[in-house]
Design a protein around this nucleic acid. Structure first.
Length: 596
RNA sequence: GCGCCCGUAGCUCAGCUGGAUAGAGCGCUUCCCUGCGGAGGAAGAGGUCUGAUGUUCGAAUCAUCACGGGCGCACCA
């Protein structure tokens, strides 16, 4: 369905083509820098050359020839080299409200008959480590991307991938054993049971395992001679030694359970969870195969793929001690994905930009193996603290749990403060505070572009003033409040729908109404662009814009004091505005409370 | 040394497929609650868009080169 924004541009392009006797593309229709100039504009620069006249003269000529008749537009006027077009307030608002009422929660989404499949890998925290705010950017961005791409008509398969084997696990478990005074060699199943029994339930967390890992890294730094023990542990794990495997399975469960809880809380939805342990054996096989084919070769005891001729250096795919690397497993993962989803059109991998070189090497190798489609790298810059970059190896991280608790306690405090007299029950307070906390955290991470290093500042993250998620929620909430007072709100859903057959007035008369409607009209275009450019930040920016227009409308137009069909129309406008705003925030996986 | 990314207001960022006086938020200075909810709104101060050259009728936007900062570049992930 063609929604209003596109409809208007197409309409203007057609009328201009008629006047000029040549093709004008809708893409040539732009928006003036100042709303008082008009709602749309057409620059005459390109025509000037072809027609041999000055742009200003052409603009005047077009303005005088434009005849709108039956149309949403009321006037065209020349201003320098531009022709500006103005929409009728009544027609503009009418059309946008109708769009939203027809589409409801689908407003902004493309309807497709047969969606192409797109694999989206994100959410790659490793087991045996804690989740920190660096991971949060990936999780939040990934889920938003998943939503935005779905809205744009892709059949998205969101997938997670967890490093549950490899050096970091070996280090963690090695230190777990050593720290509890067990001998690494000759470690038995009974000893593994004994060790596990010694760890109290409340310590069976990712945080605890992360501390073990960080401590192991420190110990190895100080005592390099222990590296052989760690290699030994990793080899035993890869050989499925019963004792180490037991310890590994149990500790891994702690991590995976924790992930499930956190993903659920964040609204992260994964269709297929991959584990490195699923692909490690096949990865080693593929390395052998590559060796046989002559694609890979031995170098300093390790196995590498030489990519020097592509200016990508050498790609290490097996360590000299015979154990696997990230790359060993990634080769097999790529193969497995294609086996399970043979119809996939595209495959995206969302990872930290610092890994871009590695992924270029990986993709080049996949190309040599003819594993198509070769994935697309979607990068984002890392999250840093004022004190410096976070590293789980060094242990200077803000864990997600700590951050979340901080934000929740702050938002709870605010909610309680604002509703001291409203007799809200604990459940309502808790839910509202959770919605606001989610909005604060997620919006803060989504509103800026992926390629900006994100400096995490707790104080800033806790502020809900200005262009923040809670600001957008607040705008939607005030609209809901008006609807409630008018007694016309559907309590179960914020989305308007099914009123498109009821007559709607065209008597809207305020510029704030039109400004709001025009912003709402841009939503589908922004979503499409966000999907095309893989930038959910565009949707976040739109949400701020929409909330600002809502606040201006709120200031300028009193809905409940209007009368007759205009009041009814305005109620439908704000219901539509709320519906669109909730849809926009929904794409960012941000919930909107009824009240706040 | 080579490669990738960033450089726009005091701070955090939009704008970048070239076009009208460069926009927000925070902070700062003033206002606005007997008004549909002040997590809000209005106004003000604050800019050689890092610099240079080039392309163009036109450059924050494109190209090249500097400068500044960040991040990568084989047994970590």
């Amino acid at each position: 369905m063609t929604t209003s924004w596109t409809y208007w541009k197409n309409d203007l392009a057609k009328r201009l083509s008629d006047v000029l006797g040549g093709a004008v593309s809708p893409d040539d229709i732009v928006v003036p820098p100042d709303r008082s100039l008009g709602d749309f504009a057409f620059g005459c620069f390109k025509l000037a050359k072809a027609m041999g006249k000055s742009p200003a003269d052409i603009a005047k000529e077009i303005a005088s020839k434009m005849n709108f008749g039956q149309s949403d537009f009321t006037s065209a006027s020349a201003a320098g080299p531009y022709v500006n077009f103005t929409l009728s307030v009544g027609e503009a608002v009418h059309r946008v409200v109708r769009d939203i009422e027809v589409l409801g929660e689908k407003y902004g989404s493309v309807e497709t008959k047969k969606a192409d499949e797109l694999l989206l890998e994100f959410a790659q925290p490793n087991t045996h480590k804690e989740i920190h705010v660096g991971h949060l950017r990936n999780l939040v961005l990934g889920q938003a991307l998943s939503n935005v791409l779905s809205a744009a008509g892709w059949k998205v398969v969101p997938m997670s991938y967890h490093g549950d084997v490899g050096a970091h696990v070996a280090k963690c478990l090695w230190w777990l054993g050593k720290g509890f005074r067990f001998q690494v060699s000759g470690f038995s199943v009974e000893q593994a049971d004994k060790l596990l029994d010694q760890i109290p339930v409340e310590r069976r967390t990712g945080k605890f395992l992360g501390e073990m890992y960080a401590e192991a890294s420190r110990q190895l730094e100080a005592n390099p001679e222990w590296k052989d023990e760690v290699s030994d542990v990793q080899r035993k794990l890869e050989a499925h030694d019963p004792a180490w495997e037991k310890l590994w399975r149990e500790t891994r469960r702690w991590s995976l359970d924790e992930f499930a809880t956190i993903f659920d809380d964040l609204g992260v939805k994964i269709a297929r969870q991959y584990l490195e342990s699923e692909v490690v054996d096949r990865g080693q096989e593929m390395v052998d195969h590559l060796l046989k084919q002559g694609v890979a070769k031995e170098s300093q005891g390790a196995i590498v793929v030489d990519l020097e001729d592509k200016k990508l250096g050498v790609f290490l795919i097996r360590k000299s001690d015979g154990t696997s690397l990230y790359a060993t497993k990634d080769l097999a993962l790529a193969e497995l994905k294609l086996k399970e989803y043979p119809k996939a059109e595209r495959s995206l991998i969302l990872v930290d930009n610092r890994q871009s070189f590695y992924f270029k090497q990986l993709f080049e190798t996949l190309r040599m193996l003819e594993l198509n489609p070769v994935p697309e790298f979607v990068g984002y810059e890392f999250v840093t603290l004022k004190s410096g970059a976070m590293s789980s190896r060094e242990g200077n991280v803000v864990t997600y749990q700590d951050f979340r608790n901080e934000v929740i306690s702050y938002s709870t405090e605010e909610v309680v403060k604002r509703h001291a007299e409203d007799k809200w029950n604990d459940g309502k307070i808790e839910h509202t505070a959770w919605c606001i906390a989610m909005a604060g955290m997620k919006f803060g991470m989504l509103k800026q572009d992926n390629d900006k290093v994100f400096t995490f500042d707790l104080e800033q993250a806790l502020s809900f003033d200005g262009d923040t998620g809670p600001y957008c929620q607040y705008a939607a909430t005030r609209l809901a409040s008006i609807l409630r007072k008018a007694g016309s709100t559907p309590s179960d859903s914020p989305f308007v729908r099914g009123r498109e057959d009821e007559p709607l007035t065209r008597s809207f008369d305020h510029t704030s109404e039109k400004a709001l409607a025009l912003t709402l009209a841009q939503f589908p275009v922004k979503v499409a662009q966000a999907a095309e450019e893989l930038r959910p930040s565009l949707v976040a920016q739109w949400c701020i814009d929409a909330a600002q227009r809502v606040n201006e409308f709120y200031r300028d137009v009193n809905v409940l004091e209007s009368e007759g069909e205009l009041k009814e129309g305005r109620l439908r406008l704000i219901a539509a505005a709320r519906s669109a705003l909730v849809a926009g925030l929904g794409l960012l996986a941000i919930p909107v409370p009824d009240e706040m």
